[in-house]
């Protein structure tokens, strides 16, 4: 195991974990809804991107289409279905599973078992004796960019302020004139858009099929469990830590043990820090402020 191959693996794993989890983390952290259709949102993003790229749209714009398209669809799904289930966590699990069945099988019926993909752009570079895929490095940069975007949305906009207020205490936020239902719909839509973005970004690197999203599911759930309720702090910290664990296991023993390692991390964290990394960080901040 050389340091450079480890580095290469870490770049891959970190960006994969962050991008897989970010949409799920937004919806879970802000709305306490476990979105089991998350994988299907990612898959839809990949389909939209691939289809528009094949229609001649430049790849980067196709990816944006993927994010926007899935964001709109997320908004519709929320208005039609999810908004009736706010506060019913387990029912929302069941209903999002129903949604995922419909989307996955629907795509199978419409587009068949697989779709001609687009090839990975940008080639590769050699650096310090080993080759890196430029696109993979770009994904790493984008994953950090996505976290930054999340920071901007939730910390720097009025919507972000309202949504954090709603997350802390729905009743108070509502009594101060915040339309909490609209905040939830927007949040769900933003989470879906992030999932669509992820699908679009990974569309050129993987085979496109209706089960495209399944490959992201385990990683996304583990990252969110380990990260805890705060999508920004949680996702970035757990993406970093799990990325290190995962890349070491991947390069030494292979993908399977990488997955087992993630699962064990998730179980340990639920056992020891049930609020995840962000819970610990928040507690630490509270303590610091009080002293």
């Amino acid at each position: 195991m050389s340091l450079s191959s480890l580095m290469n693996q870490f770049i891959n794993d970190f960006s994969f974990l962050i991008l897989a989890a970010i949409g799920l983390a937004v919806i879970f952290g802000m709305m306490k809804i476990i979105n089991l259709a998350h994988g299907e949102f990612i898959m839809l993003g990949a389909y939209i991107t691939t289809l528009s790229a094949q229609a001649g749209v430049p790849l980067i714009i196709s990816i944006v289409f993927g994010a926007i398209g899935v964001g709109i669809m997320g908004y519709l799904i929320d208005r039609l279905i999810i908004c009736r289930l706010y506060g019913r966590t387990l029912d929302s699990v069941v209903v999002t599973w129903g949604i995922s069945m419909v989307i996955q099988q629907g795509m199978l019926i419409i587009f068949g078992p697989s779709l001609q993909g687009v090839s990975t752009p940008l080639g590769s570079v050699s650096f310090a004796g080993s080759t890196y895929s430029v696109y993979r490095i770009l994904l790493f940069a984008i994953s950090i960019g996505a976290l930054f975007l999340l920071y901007l949305i939730f910390m720097k906009t009025k919507f972000g302020l309202y949504s954090r207020a709603t997350m802390q205490n729905q009743e108070i936020a509502r009594s101060m004139g915040v339309n909490t239902n609209r905040i939830y719909s927007m949040t769900f839509s933003i989470g879906a858009a992030f999932a669509g973005l992820t699908g679009g970004l990974y569309a050129p690197t993987m085979a496109i099929s209706p089960t495209f999203g399944t490959g992201f599911l385990m990683q996304s759930f583990v990252t969110v469990i380990v990260g805890g309720a705060n999508p920004l702090i949680g996702t970035s910290l757990s993406g970093g830590v799990l990325g290190i664990v995962n890349s070491i296991l991947d390069t030494t023993w292979g993908t399977f043990f990488g997955e087992i390692g993630l699962l064990i991390c998730a179980i340990l964290v639920i056992r020891l820090l049930p609020l995840g990394f962000s819970g610990v960080v928040e507690k630490w901040f509270v303590r610091k402020r009080r002293m």
Binding site: V94, M101, V102
Partner: peptide, 11 residues
């Protein structure tokens, strides 16, 4: 259509 119908029933 089995899975689609089933998913809709569930929702």
């Amino acid at each position: 259509y089995a899975l689609v119908i089933l998913g809709l029933i569930l929702i």
